[in-house]
Write a protein that binds this DNA or RNA. Structure first.
Lengths: 218, 218
DNA sequence: TCAAAAGTGTTTGAATTACACCCATGG
DNA sequence: CCATGGGTGTAATTCAAACACTTTTGA
């Protein structure tokens, strides 16, 4: 079969990331193809003949995550002829980001969240995809407002700072962080506080705009 | 035909850029497919069933440019089902950069260099590809040494500065530029000067390393 | 009243910017 | 000797980094 395919099979594999209080997490499912059956793998599947790749991504996502909207971005296309033993399968991979509060509801398909810094050996070239995705996310953090895609609707400045710290893997100075973020004018100050904790209640904020913009962040 | 393709056709389209004394230039050929016959287009073609995408890029390049080595990088994959009227053709596009001195030799296939800021209407979605490629190049200039791929083996600091200015589309201060570049330690000072001009001869430099590295440039 | 996180300015050092003149060559 | 681009340093400013105490709440 491998030798006389005239066309490539088009598939997509998806690195779905979220950030909780402790780490970046990636969504893993279980491979079903013969060659990798039972191994952990990124969610993915074939792209229909009349389907936009991005529509396939959304369709596949819906099967595993009950998520209404999410940030999607094409990552890289892996097309080596031998990456799938079944034949020429070209995978246009995507990065998907969702806020942790909308991510808790994974239930179908045996999907689970794994800390991105300790992913096991995955099927296909999926470890490489995860690596590429992390690099992309870290890179975009520095010059875009992409963080909005990982935050819940309302959050405190400490929540936001923690998300940056987790992704960048370094501590930030609280006062300098707040100075910078405030200056950028991306946030709306809400007339609410996060009450009910044994300390001074934190003011809540939301993003005034939820689409990707380029700007100097770090 | 369009309706019952079970597989996608895999192609590649290539944005080949170079920079001369006045502008960024992109290599254009002429489309041959029925739908766009005669229109200017990026060089491209089908990827063979057993061929790596990058190998196809190199093979197609060789047909139009007598270039030995070049910087290649995958750009983006365009896969909308209706982007080619012939059916589902997925194009994994590449950015290729070559120094102007190796670019002068285009002769076959009616290929020509066009100023990237005044490309005509191109076949398919090729204008979008060019736009994506320019953005990528400008972006990478700021945080990598990618400029090496556009410079000849030996060059003056003024040549280098002009290349930056053309791509960034703004003037740089000569003294500050030299301070910064010197500090980065990417260049070897050659024991040569560029003689034969009606002014003080400029020292020649070359890159000490010609592979992509990330570093703060601007 | 104690513990825990929120909130807030100033000082210091580093990096970036602005800026002008003399030099070496070819014609 | 003139025109052309090559080559060089310093001062002013802006930006980034370091740093500590008071406030507010729930328990």
């Amino acid at each position: 079969m491998k030798d006389n395919l005239k066309f490539a099979i088009l598939s997509t594999d998806i690195a779905v990331f979220t950030v909780d209080e402790t780490s970046i997490k990636v969504l893993l499912t279980t491979a079903t193809s013969d060659a990798f059956k039972g191994m952990p793998a990124l969610p993915g599947g074939l792209v229909g003949p009349e389907e936009k790749i991005e529509d396939a991504v959304k369709r596949i996502l819906k099967k595993v995550l009950p998520v209404k909207s999410a940030y999607l971005e094409q990552l890289y296309t892996f097309g080596d002829p031998d990456r799938d033993p079944i034949g020429r399968v070209v995978s246009a991979t995507y990065l998907v980001l969702i806020p942790w509060n909308t991510a808790k509801l994974v239930d179908r398909q045996g999907a689970s969240w794994r800390d991105v810094r300790s992913v096991p050996k995955l099927a296909y070239d999926h470890n490489e995809i995860v690596k590429t995705a992390v690099k992309r996310l870290v890179g975009k953090l520095a010059y875009t407002n992409i963080i909005f895609s990982l935050m819940p609707q309302e959050f405190t400045l400490t929540d936001l700072q923690k998300a940056y710290e987790l992704i960048l893997d370094r501590k930030l100075d609280k006062r300098n962080f707040r100075k910078k973020i405030g200056f950028l004018g991306l946030l709306d100050k809400l007339p609410k506080r996060k009450e009910g904790e044994a300390n001074r209640p934190a003011r809540l904020y939301s993003f005034s705009e939820k689409k990707l913009r380029e700007l100097e962040i770090l």
